[in-house]
Amino acid sequence: MNKEVVLQVKNLKTHFTTSKGTAKAVDGVDFTLHKGETLGIVGESGCGKSITSLSLLRLIPTPPGKIVEGEILLNNKDIVKMKEEELRKVRGNQISMIFQEPMTSLNPIIPVGEQIAETIRLHQRLPRKPAWQKAVDLLEMVGLPSPEKRAKQEPFQLSGGMRQRVMIAMALACTPEVLIADEPTTALDVTIQAQILELMKDLQKQIGMSIIFITHDLGVVSEVCDQVAVMYAGQIVEHRNAKDLFKTPLHPYTQGLLSSLPNIHENQQELQTIEGSVPSPYDYPVGCRFADRCPHAREICRAEAPDLLETNNAETKVRCFMHTEKWEVIEEKEELVCP
């Protein structure tokens, strides 16, 4: 693949220091985002996906959180090292974000049109009137009925779906290169979710931005994403093309996740489950973080931490000894230590 790289994240670590110790919420995340691509970051609650997304724009509240290591390269410039001034020019301009709760994420007492227009005035140096007009145009673009009227309204006067459209309009106001969508449809009903996903796909075609789509919903990922990164305990455990991942998941965690989903298209007797629970971010095990719950775990999995490595297919990365060359030897020599 010789697509242009927009964003490259290298060994990102975001830790939180609390009275209980240090929580390694994001603990060594690497990924590359190409132009026009949609990358899904999936995982269950506490896996670090949201913290990863907030870290990209350095929106982690400090203290207690801090990016302790790593690089976030936007067109080869490191966001982690940027000065405040420089960072503000990236936020909302080159990289913008939409959040899960459109109600609480919009300022309740400022008309939605103004909330969009202020971003335009800030980054594009437009005067009030044209900025307002552009906000109204954007609202029309995201399919808000009677945008002139709606622009003057406050968030509580809009429905949940409309509010998320406003958020999208706001995020796209300066035609960003990267849009980070953190659970953008989780708070919405399915029929409204379908509208919003469709809208995002359309707008991506028009604008050509890259999207990082954070969600726990594997169905949504498979609908909208080209690439998928599965996170577990602060790390990416599998990163591949979406189609392949859903067809033949490689990492035992991904396999477990997919098989615990109830299927809407056929009747099943019993759902597969993943036994045990996620390790505490304050105290990760030395070896593979999934080993305690993994049906394939051997001694080495407890003793050594696997790296996120390319398999024989260069576009597929997985963090598991099962997919390394030495596995055949391990399989013969070592006993299963599964739960």
Partner: peptide
């Protein structure tokens, strides 16, 4: 501590 303040920061406001 509200979400909309995070949004405002995410927009790049001073």
């Amino acid at each position: 501590g509200q979400d909309y303040i995070r949004t405002a920061r995410a927009k790049g406001l001073k």
